[in-house]
Design a binder for these strands. Structure first.
Lengths: 365, 365
DNA sequence: TTTTGTCAACCCCCTTTTTAGATTGCTAAT
DNA sequence: ATTAGCAATCTAAAAAGGGGGTTGACAAAA
């Protein structure tokens, strides 16, 4: 064993790196050469391992929090580790069944699906779970209706194919007969049903501008509805986050201050929404099943101590949202990745079940 | 100064008690007899104060966390202290103006009022803020409508006088023409508008059972709507909580474990809703402007380290919800109490502005 | 009877010291 | 290229001091 081929050496190096990551994930303590030599790689001496670890440190995979007290994986090491886990492990059938049962128990009508899914994700992962309904502009419209709730005051109600309901008040300067409201609603629904929200809006603007005689009476309303629809508070993305408490338990090394910042991020939602929107776009483009972003890979500085594991879900062939967990960098990636993937499948199933029953008719008016 | 009249002695005792509370609220450190003698009550010796404090301890107002290291107010002491603050201080005009300005800036359409109010409460108090829309059964109905969103699938939309919107899906076994839906909606709205939700439900049941010819076709739907309406997830109370992060900063003495429990309570919502519902009932009955419950006065063991300051708000003459803050026991009660009261006024104003514009008409059909 | 002065004992909290355990880097041998 | 051995280093936890403030008790004063 005098001369080692380069590939063999590389192989061994990576093996050690993986072992360090795994070890650190398990007991969150810097891992040293002796430990490795005595537990995992008994055929190599601790001195050799030391040398290799030094290399790994120079390459940016490990670092020592203190001058002589074991080494800790960097984000780069986690990245290698996660990439190494080729594809997503499929969960054991037994495990799948167990989770599916819980899912069926908890997830009721579609209105609560996202909330419940996020909660279940949190519980099962022991971290914070989220479901993000995505940029609502890309959602497919099912219906748009107008209800008179007071003189000069109308409630617009929008139902999408993925079952979410949005509503917003529209203040008109004057009264409008319910019959007129129905007329507008009817006209609109004949056309826009099946379009994405973005398309629908564009279509409606054009329709109004073209000056169709039928809508002369209600053009004002239509314009106002569209305007109000675009208000930030109305078009706020749907985002459910559950199990924030879990974040306290694990996030090592993140001291109290970091924690508070993280909580603030989660509470504000806006910025988190933006981040998730980006992630979703990445997922959509890359076609990956599960994405992981580790520590500093998250651009938000408040999230530099956590990892985010996420998976997109589709309605029909459109990616409309995603779900996942936010947890400590040293999480059990294999387990969590397969969990997230599976929950995504369940959520997809739940939504398509909602859509399947009614074989979509064009119009009910 | 030989003999002290009992009242004088009592007076002095209470003064010391108040001083201890105040002092502890300020710097969160056990307060001892010397400190008091040297800072507040310079005409009494520390030895005397010691004696009195011992009395107070025996009466359950103070306790020593350690054998010789100053004393800390018990919940009983806080209770005395809060009760002593006769009535609610009115805020300085300047302060009121400042807050009102912020309120107007942030609080937009009614749909977001509660969310925004809770956030503002949190920011201004430096604790967690909440707005609780109360038991929805007591809310006054404005409208109830039905939208066809798919074959055999209908969306019920309920709008209340306080401007909240609830919706839930109703699955029917078969299709129903939109005209029929409108018929039902029209019939219902003629009657129930202005009733509380509870009354409306009762009325509808009776109406159905009386077998009116007009609703023969849609009786099934009506029944189903009512059933679904009562499902727990549908009738979930509206509750907004903001600024949870603040709870981390202050809650002294509550160690990490307590904190996690508190977070869990806030996340679960159900139990918290229950607690708040009780509090609201108390407020309604007692007619108090602001209620404070301190530590162990909260029956939930997870909340034994915090105080809750709350105030009810009305629509018309009905108490329909409440708002307040959840913070550390050692908070600035005077400040927080007046803040909560004032925010309640603002919220009330906001809602009645919403209601004022339309002079309620009976029916729009 | 109430208040006060005084003082030993106490305990917390902070800092410093000690100790045990593990790790590293280096060097010389294999 | 690998290994064994060793001194130096550092941490984390336990142990050992102080300083500061507090209490309790008692006797003296009011």
């Amino acid at each position: 064993m005098r001369i080692l081929k380069p590939e063999v050496a590389k192989e061994r190096k990576e093996k050690i790196l993986r072992w360090v990551v795994q070890q650190f994930v398990e007991n969150r303590r810097p891992v040293g050469s002796q430990l490795i030599a005595s537990s995992a790689l008994k055929d190599i001496s601790s001195a050799t391992i030391r040398n290799i670890m030094k290399d790994l440190e120079e390459e940016g995979y490990l670092y020592q929090p203190h001058t002589s007290g074991g080494r800790i994986p960097t984000d780069k090491a986690y990245r290698y580790y996660v990439d190494y886990l080729t594809g997503v492990q499929r969960m054991a059938a037994q495990e799948r069944e167990r989770i599916e049962k819980q899912y069926d128990e908890r997830v009721g009508e579609l209105d609560n699906v996202m909330l419940q899914t996020s909660r279940l994700l949190a519980r099962l992962s022991g971290a914070a779970g989220f479901v993000y309904a995505g940029n609502t502009e890309e959602q497919v419209v099912r219906r748009l209706d107008f209800l008179p709730v007071g003189p000069g005051l109308i409630l617009a109600v929008l139902v999408t194919e993925s079952g979410t309901v949005r509503h917003w008040p529209v203040r008109l300067g004057y009264d409008l007969a319910p019959a007129k409201l129905r007329l507008l609603s009817s006209l609109i629904n004949q056309e826009i049903s099946g379009m994405t929200l973005r398309e629908a809006q564009k279509f409606m603007w054009q329709y109004i501008e073209s000056g169709h005689r039928e809508i002369a009476d209600v053009a004002d309303l239509a314009v106002q509805v569209l305007k109000d629809m675009q208000k930030p508070q109305t078009s706020e993305d749907e985002l459910y986050v559950a199990g924030i408490g879990h974040m306290l338990e694990n996030t090592e090394e993140a001291d109290y201050e970091d924690l508070k910042q993280m909580l603030r991020v989660v509470e504000e939602r806006q910025r988190l929404s933006g981040l998730l929107a980006e992630k979703m776009e990445d997922l959509r483009r890359s076609g990956k099943q599960v994405a992981v972003s580790i520590g500093s890979e998250n651009e938000m500085k408040e999230l530099q101590n956590v990892s985010i594991v996420s998976s997109a879900y589709r309605v029909g062939d459109k990616t409309v949202g995603m779900l996942g967990i936010i947890g400590p960098k040293h999480m059990q990636y294999t387990k969590v990745m397969s969990l997230v993937k599976f929950m995504g499948d369940l959520l997809e199933g739940s939504i398509s079940a909602w859509n399947a029953l009614p074989e979509k008719e064009d119009d009910y008016e």
